[in-house]
Each structure stands twice: as C-alpha cells, then as structure tokens.
Design a protein around this nucleic acid. Structure first.
Lengths: 247, 247
DNA sequence: TGTTGTCAGATTGTCAACAATCTTCTTGAC
DNA sequence: GTCAAGAAGATTGTTGACAATCTGACAACA
C-alpha cells in the first residue's frame, strides 16, 4: 500500500506490521490518496493534465500540498511530471504495460520463494489455504467473477504483506497499483479462472512443502499469464480504436 | 540514473536515450543531486538528520526546493522522511541490504534476459565484448582493483541503459545507488575478481548466443555472490562494533 | 527515585504572492 | 491556404512569513 493510502488492517489473519503508522495524515497525503482513487478508477483519462491550481481550489488548500501530492503520485507512476509543464495522468503504452508485468513476474517470484523458504510460514498457511478454498468454490460459479477477482487481489496483497520487508512491498504495491486496470483481464472468463485456481493450489502446496524454487516458478508463470491476457486485450482495443478512427 | 542527476552521455558506444532531457534543472533537482553525492560518499552519517532550514541556508534558497529535494531523495531510498520529524539519512539494516540485493538479483536477471532475447542486440555486443576484454586485463593485475570496480560499474550502467525501458531502469538505478557502498565488497580481492570475470565472460557469450535463460541465470548468480560478500562483511563489522562497544 | 506536567525553542506544515516560463491565439506575410 | 512571429493568458517555480507540532529540559508530585 502506498504511504499516502489510509492504512487499513489486513483482511486475512496474521500478525500486523509493526510499522510507524502516522496518526494524522498531512494534507498532501490526503490529497494524494483521493487523486489516486480517481486515477485508478478511471475518473481522469490517461494523458489528462492535472493542474495544481484547480486541485487546490477543489480541496480548498494552497498549491503547496497539492504540489507535494503530485510528487507522491509520480513516485507510484500514476502521474508523470514534466518540468514546467506540470503533471498528467500517466498513459502507459502497451510496451510499458508489458514491462511492468515482467517486473511483477520476477518480484512476485521472489516474494513467493521467500515465503516458501520462511521457517515461520506455518503461521499464515491456514489463512492462505482457507482463501484458496474459497477461490475454488468461486471458480465453479461462472457468475461470481467479480468476487473471484476481489479475492485474488486480497490474496495477493496478503502475500505481499507477510512476505516481504518494506522495500519489496513498496515496489510491488506500486506496480500493482499501476496495472490494477489490467490485472483482472486474465480472470475474465470462467475458463481462465479455472486455470488460475490451479496455479493458486499448486502455489500453496509449494509453500507448505517449503519448495522455494517451485513457488517462484508458479508465481512467475501466473503473472506472465495475466500479462499475456492483458496485452492481447490491449492490442484488440488498439486495433478497434484505429478502425473506428479510420471510419 | 535518478532524474535529479545531471545527465551524462553513456561512456560506452550506443544510441543515446531519446528522452525528454530537461535543459535546465530545477533548484530542487540540483540540491537533490548535491545531497545525493554527499550521502553516497558518506559525508552524512546514516541516521543523521537533515534539516530543511540548514540546507536552505547553505544553498541560499528558500525551504521549498529543499523540501522537494528531500522528497526526491526519499524516492531513491537515500533518506527516510517521518511525519513532522523531517528527513534523516537512511540507515539500512543488514536484512534490508540483503533484501535490496535480492531484488537486484531478480531484476538484473530480467534485464540481461531481455538483452539476450533482443533481436537488435548485435548493435551493442562489440562494445560489451571490448569492455569485458578490458576487465580480463584488469583482473590479471592485483593492483588495479579500483579500475576493475569502476569498469564493472560502468558496464552495469550500460547494460541497464540499453536493455530496459524507463521503468526497469528507474528501479535498477535507484537500487544500485542505495547499495553502492556495498557492491564493491564482492570485488575486493584478486581472487574474487577472477571469479567475477568468468561471470562476465559467460554472460556476454549467453547474450551473443541469444540464450535468455542462461543470461538470466548468470546475472542472478553474480548479484547473489556480491550480496553474500557484502553481508558477510557487514556482519563482521557489526560484531566488531559490538566487541568494541563492550570493551 | 521515578513519573508526570509544563514550558520554551526548534522544526515541519501550510499559505499567499511574485517571478519565470510555457501555451495558445491572433496577426501578418508569402 | 500555410507558416512564422509576437503578445496575452495560463501555469509552474520560488519565496518569506505564519501556524501547528514535536523535542528536550526542568520542576512538581507521588
């Protein structure tokens, strides 16, 4: 979770992070959190400019905190800041989406390998297995795709939360945020979800067995699969747009 | 290279990045670059507080740009900012150093695999081979350890530069900056350098052969080796300190 | 002796105004 | 009709001052 996001307790069981959670958020962090929601939700179009004065007026603050909020969002790749031209919502090319998924594949592999090799992993295995069992139930029901996606997302956040120290978590959270819009494409059909559940089951088994190499291999394959699904979808969209433009 | 660092031409041959290089750096970027040098060089001790007013006075600017510069440094992990308590030079625990090297191992693996699988890789192979040949010469001379370290560092920057799109480059540059102090430990003896040169030779061969999996494996192993050397050294230092403290 | 309350100084968070730069629209020439 | 030059407006970069909060020391109390 980015630092400006309000900290919420992890939904799955497990020891909470003993981190220094600030009790009060600065204005900049609050504004960053609000803008982040909008960008991820698509309320601002990719490429759209975000102007300091307008945001400052909307939230009734001066430009200082807004300026800082935009810097925070840039850190997560949600906006791009150009010198003397301000911030605009990051517009990812297909190549960039691919690159982000490639990085996520490697780092999710590392994450799950570290979990599988953690001597204390039995602490959170029950929660993991319960969640995967829930996934299996959802996968059998073609109508509950949204719930499936939500559960996978929560599972992923949980793994990132328990596995990694601060730095890996920061990077993974940031990358996940940037590709949120695309990640669910790989789970959009019942068939894909049945393939996905097999990955998760094998992953939990590898973690239980302490097989780090296998956990890494599965995690990597899983992200690469969703990468391919996302890219195929984006390419379809691009050609559609081009055709519509030509017409 | 972080965005606030002055952009210098890549020392090895190759097409330069067609990036939007700002012609003038903002005050914040200039200050960030200066502070970055000091931190990496060790002029500020880890854990030391950096106060906005003092820096502002030193560079004869207001606190605004200094504040922003500290945010830039935080993005690279060089300083840690706590709410209402300001910035301090990041103090990496041994566990954190290990984690950063783990992440670098994965992403260097990705980087070199992408290079090996790039159809246009022949463009920069001659430069790579020349540089590795230079390394081989330096490795035979026990007295030229510093030159060896410098060449390895340049080679690494070059690979990061040619291989990756912006996002992978950003992450790798940032992580390399944070572990600059420790990376050279793995090359500190003639024996270690002889082992290192073998890695580099195998890597270039794998790239030439287009063997992405092999390139990834070698790169990963190389970073893991320097990780182990760095951690062993840090643990020696820690126990030494403890002994001195007890005495 | 150890704990708690309070105070002054130090430091960060925020604001509003000014300066520097960029964008866009208009005007004019070819 | 197309392109270039210039001016007006919009936008970001920077500044100095004020407000809110934190830190450390000292005193009062159990």
């Amino acid at each position: 979770m980015p630092s400006y996001a309000a900290r919420t307790a992890m939904p799955l069981a497990g020891a909470d992070a003993p981190e220094t959670a600030p009790l009060t958020q600065s204005l900049a962090e609050q504004i960053a959190a609000r803008l982040s929601e909008r960008i991820v939700a698509g309320a601002y179009a990719p490429g759209q400019r975000i102007m300091e004065q307008a945001i400052a007026a909307e939230f009734a603050v001066s430009r200082g905190p807004v300026r800082e909020a935009l810097r925070l969002l840039e850190k997560d790749g949600l906006v791009t800041i150009l010198a003397r031209r301000g911030a605009q919502v990051t517009n990812l090319s297909i190549a960039e989406v691919r690159e982000i998924f490639d990085i996520r594949a490697m780092l999710n592999g590392l994450r799950d390998r570290l979990i599988a090799e953690d001597p204390g992993r039995m602490r959170y295995l029950p929660a993991l297995e319960a969640e995967v069992a829930k996934l299996a139930r959802l996968a059998r029901d073609a109508d509950r795709g949204d719930e499936y996606v939500e559960t996978v997302s929560r599972l992923n956040r949980y793994l990132t939360h328990v596995a990694s120290n601060r730095r890996l978590r920061t990077i993974l959270d940031s990358l996940a945020l940037q590709t949120l819009r695309y990640s669910q494409i790989g789970l959009s059909t019942p068939q894909r979800r049945r393939q996905s559940i097999q990955h998760w089951q094998k992953l939990v088994k590898a973690i239980r067995d302490g097989d780090g190499a296998e956990a890494e291999r599965i995690a990597r394959q899983r992200v690469q699969d969703s990468r391919d699904a996302a890219i195929a979808q984006l390419q379809r969209l691009a050609t559609d747009n081009k055709a519509r433009h030509a017409a």
